[in-house]
Design a protein around this nucleic acid. Structure first.
Lengths: 248, 248
DNA sequence: CGCCCGATTGACAGTTGTCAAGGAGCGTGG
DNA sequence: CCACGCTCCTTGACAACTGTCAATCGGGCG
């Protein structure tokens, strides 16, 4: 999956596509140069594991492009995704080398990695970074809590509708979201990964996708491209309050 | 439920039972005095709502004693707990007055509240607080992710066993955890609240509790007091790896 | 062309939810 | 002092949703 033409060799932050959203969002020129000195890029192919749960990670990183996941696996193979990392999201926990979850490249992924030790030292003296990191962590916590409602209380159909609306919002943000226009987006996950995200089996995911298609809530172009004729209908299917915020 | 004899009038942080674990854990004497100037105590009776989702909260707070919950409710009444706040846990999000979830006193609760505005200002210039808050938020995020595995992939019986082991760990930590000794603890939640925590119905919770009791995994003294004759048997029932860390 | 991976669909089973009845503990008031 | 009512909990019968197992489909690639 081609996510970007960002060059690994290029190290100038000012050209970085996530410059204004990542952990470095509030940094000034001087701070960017400090970060620049401790950073390096790494890429992973779709399906590759970035780190296994329990292993040490010598860096922390921002996702520059592509999609990665955090997941836990039980002894008997049951799997639950616990984080879906898109562009600008942060990987790794400061002051703790050992990672708690398997980190996997869902699509081809490029990371902007910061060597752990100097990053942790910088964190102490650079409020622009630590404040931004706190804010991002609080956002992730909120997202995790929305996700918990989905996992604990929603029906399979509501889970799928919720997932589609979450992806639609993320993928189309920034792009012109004209009211009344069809919403079209690409699913970044296979049916199996969707199942891991939603606490379902891939068969149930497939059936519910077919059901939403049969009922005209969505249309499919191929397996991955989704078209939503009326977004409010999709929202109704999520089970959430209709007034849960402005659309786009 | 009597959780503490901590006096609301007493304002000296050095006598505070959560002094070394809360958001103020790393503060020096001077910083404590600054916090002291902007703090006040509030108490809530079991069952009382502290704030409703969507309302504004003019303070942030630490739980001094008792148990509170964060929960979301769907239009049709389905409810999912998304946070269980015990002593030293933090309530409220800096720089955002509106709360996202219903905050409820599960037992009688005492809060140490900081007026929002001055706390937010202090956060900027006091790394001891912001660093501790980041650490606590990361811990909460990890807890939320463990919880997501429980909600998404575990059976009803595994959910109950997982919940019991989580509570046992929290309630008995600090107390002498002699290996081989029976573990005894008090459930802070009703069956219905456990159901909201675990994404089950209260009937299923009740049935699984009875099942674990029938199979000798736990014993019940009354409805709320639980005795675990062999903690490793309980761990087996959670479905987690046995080597998931040292007990206690 | 044939293989392989991901996706779809069907038949059936099993876990959990729903609806309903009843029990246990506790405080209140006659 | 005991009956009553209340809340919380337990248990049963049945239904429904989702999982399991299995067969098949379709597109991409060697």
């Amino acid at each position: 999956m081609q996510h970007t033409d960002f060059k690994l060799e290029k190290t100038d932050c000012s050209a970085c596509p996530i410059r204004h959203r990542a952990v470095c969002a509030r940094c000034d020129q001087d701070e960017l140069e400090q970060l620049n000195a401790i950073k390096f890029y790494r890429s992973f192919k779709a399906g590759e594991t970035i780190v296994w749960a329990g292993d040490d990670l010598d860096f922390v990183a921002s996702v520059v492009g592509g999609v990665a996941s955090l997941a836990q696996t039980m002894e008997d193979g049951r799997r639950q995704m616990v984080g879906l990392l898109l562009a600008s999201d942060f990987i790794g926990r400061p002051n703790r080398k050992a990672v708690a979850y398997d980190v996997t490249a869902v699509s081809d992924v490029t990371l902007c990695c910061f060597r752990r030790k100097p990053f942790e030292e910088m964190l102490i003296g650079t409020p622009h970074i630590s404040q931004r990191l706190l804010e991002m962590t609080l956002d992730e916590l909120d997202a995790a809590r929305e996700w918990m409602l989905i996992l604990g209380r929603k029906t399979a159909r509501e889970k799928i509708a919720s997932f589609l609306s979450i992806i639609a919002r993320r993928e189309t943000q920034g792009k012109g979201g004209e009211v009344g226009t069809d919403v079209v987006f690409e699913l970044p996950l296979t049916r199996e990964a969707m199942a891991d995200y939603l606490g379902l089996t891939l068969e149930t995911v497939s059936r519910q996708m077919s059901g939403l298609k049969r009922d005209g809530v969505i249309q499919l172009e191929g397996k991955r491209r989704v078209l939503v004729p009326d977004f409010s209908v999709l929202i109704d299917e999520t089970g959430d309050d209709a007034d849960g915020g402005v659309l786009f």
